[in-house]
Design a protein around this nucleic acid. Structure first.
Lengths: 130, 130
DNA sequence: CATAAAGGTTCCAGTTATAGGAAGGTCAAG
DNA sequence: CTTGACCTTCCTATAACTGGAACCTTTATG
């Protein structure tokens, strides 16, 4: 399989796949013409990466997960810990965003949004400091 | 005021303040020794920026907000639109994160997290593709 | 007064996870 | 044989800083 095929089948852009090779996540063979040649195993790994990335795992998390995936003697506890710590980060992010969203929402509600210059949003941002 | 003072008073790192000058958000004067000299107005702007950034506004949003802030003839509608579109992006981000979080949460719950290698998390990520 | 610590300056590189594009080699079809 | 679709590498850019090197100025101390 050439890179175009794996791109189609994995759903990842060819650019991304080359990048993943660069950083050592996949190691396709090379044809005599210099083209990358992917086996099923690589395709499989790339699909794995796509799914993990879609769940927001960082590249480094992905690297660890992939390694565990291939390690027959892993323990599920190892995997669970990576996932749990990722989940914790996501949850914190949601909390932060919700706080922003609430504040913004209030400001927006209190702004007339008309032709006049008075704006509670700007006033709040511009509050003089001590 | 030197940069250290404004850093303390605005809560922004000196590095960040220099960066903000670089990209034209603030324009401090220069002393004869080359040191930046900030007036109250600059401090005020930096505090404004700090608050807007804390609400997740992008630097470009901040640039626009700052300009509107200083423009006596702005309309509150202009400001409200920037804020509303930012809010929309935040809300979408929350939706995305919540989806990730739910999926991950389910996977984590179904994983024993013990010494055995069987792991539904990895299984889900590694599902063979067609 | 000499010196050392604290604070200032510029400039360059690194971060994350790609995306875009140039310049050029290769392959299948008409 | 040429056209177009693929492929290659390499360089640049993104957002918003952060860290560090090399160097200058000001302030405090023995």
């Amino acid at each position: 399989m050439n890179i175009g095929d794996v791109a189609t089948r994995s759903g990842l852009p060819a650019k991304t796949i080359r990048y993943y090779e660069d950083i050592g996540l996949v190691k396709p063979l090379r044809d005599t013409n210099g083209y990358r040649t992917f086996r099923e195993i690589e395709l499989h790994k790339l699909a794995f990466l796509g799914r993990a990335r879609a769940l927001g795992f960082s590249i480094e998390d992905c690297r660890n997960l992939l390694q565990l995936y291939e390690d027959e003697s892993r323990t599920s506890a190892e995997v669970k810990e990576i996932a749990a710590s990722h989940l914790e980060r996501i949850r914190q992010k949601i909390v932060d965003l919700r706080e922003m969203s609430d504040t913004l929402s209030n400001l927006i509600d209190s702004c007339a949004g008309d032709h006049r210059p008075d704006c509670p949003i700007l006033e709040s941002l511009g509050t003089k400091i001590s």
